[in-house]
Amino acid sequence: MPEIFVARSEQLGEGARQFIEHAGQQIGVMRVQGRLVAYLNVCPHQGGPVCEGMMIHRVEEVIDEDRCYQGMRFDPQTLHIVCPWHGWEFDAATGASAGDGQWSLRRFEVLERAGEIYVQV
């Protein structure tokens, strides 16, 4: 598979993003919880630039042992990308939709070698 150079490893720190162009489409590359991931910058909902959205930790509802609602909290283990157009959320590490399992971001393989990052297209 062809590879496209993205950046030097030190240029893409935790939470940083880099965008590359391939065949008229934009791919977002980011480092999430120490791992590199790359997604087509198109939300499956209505085509928004999903990789440009804010990144937040997943929000969880807190239910006590009596099944009573206690409020909400952030899950520090799961980071979401929020599409800036309509707020659809995706797991930043996997690309899976947070709300509906039938949707996910189109993922690309990312390679890091000799201090450089490449995306396979």
Rank of each mutant, 00 (worst) to 15 (best):
M1A: 13
P2W: 01
P2K: 12
E3C: 06
E3H: 06
F5H: 11
V6L: 05
R8A: 15
S9H: 09
Q11D: 15
Q11R: 06
Q11V: 03
Q11E: 15
L12S: 08
G13C: 04
G15S: 12
G15T: 09
R17V: 02
R17S: 10
Q18A: 15
F19D: 04
F19S: 08
F19E: 10
E21D: 08
E21P: 00
H22R: 08
A23P: 00
G24I: 08
Q25H: 09
Q25E: 15
I27Q: 11
M30A: 15
V32Y: 08
G34S: 06
R35F: 11
L36M: 08
V37T: 14
A38H: 03
A38F: 00
A38M: 06
Y39C: 03
L40M: 11
L40R: 13
V42L: 14
V42S: 08
P44G: 06
P44T: 05
G47K: 01
P49Q: 04
P49V: 11
V50S: 00
C51M: 13
C51W: 04
C51Y: 04
I56H: 01
I56Q: 10
R58V: 12
E60V: 13
V62M: 07
I63H: 03
I63T: 04
I63P: 00
D64P: 00
D64K: 01
D66A: 11
M72E: 15
D75T: 04
Q77T: 15
T78M: 11
T78F: 00
T78Q: 07
H80T: 02
I81S: 03
V82P: 00
G87C: 07
G87V: 05
F90N: 01
F90M: 05
D91G: 02
A93P: 10
T94R: 13
T94W: 09
A96W: 05
S97E: 11
A98C: 12
G99N: 12
G99T: 09
G101Q: 09
G101S: 13
W103R: 14
W103H: 12
W103A: 13
W103M: 15
S104Q: 12
R106I: 12
R107F: 02
F108T: 08
V110N: 09
L111Y: 06
L111T: 10
E112G: 10
E112T: 14
R113Y: 00
R113C: 02
G115K: 10
G115H: 07
E116S: 10
E116D: 07
I117R: 08
Y118D: 11
Y118N: 06
Y118L: 15
V119F: 01
Q120T: 09
V121M: 10
